[in-house]
């Protein structure tokens, strides 16, 4: 299991919780070739990102290979208070995963 791959900020702005997250991941498309060997680099990408607020899913992202390397995701939702818990979890096509919990500020 991957470790320390997620950075997340959740802040209340204008009554809404703004979540910004950065994930460290190669996001290989499977179309690129290794310049030295000429062989295709196998696809390696995040398929699903689940974002929860106090245990309730607020945003579920299904991604393909066309999301940039080291993905960035931002979304907003209402009904959050300072001190609430935000959980971000991802799973990739090789079954690797990571998750992190953050506090709304």
């Amino acid at each position: 299991m991957a470790k320390n791959t997620i950075k997340v900020r959740a802040k209340i702005k204008g009554g809404k919780c703004v979540v910004k997250t950065l994930i460290k991941h190669p996001m290989e498309t499977g179309l690129r070739k290794d310049k030295k060997t000429g062989k295709k680099i196998p696809a390696h990408f995040i398929k699903e990102v689940v974002c929860e607020h106090n245990g309730e899913k607020v945003c579920v992202a299904n991604w393909g290979v066309a999301i940039s390397k080291n993905p960035y995701l931002s979304f907003r939702f209402s009904g959050a208070n300072k001190g609430d818990t935000i959980k971000i979890a991802w799973t990739d096509n090789k079954g690797d995963s990571d998750s992190i919990e953050a506090t709304v500020s």
């Binding site: 809404k16 607020h53 309730e56 899913k57 945003c59 579920v60 992202a61 979304f75 939702f77 009904g79």
Partner: peptide, 8 residues
């Protein structure tokens, strides 16, 4: 992206 009714 699937969004919860609370999400913008």
């Amino acid at each position: 992206f699937e969004l919860n009714p609370r999400a913008d």
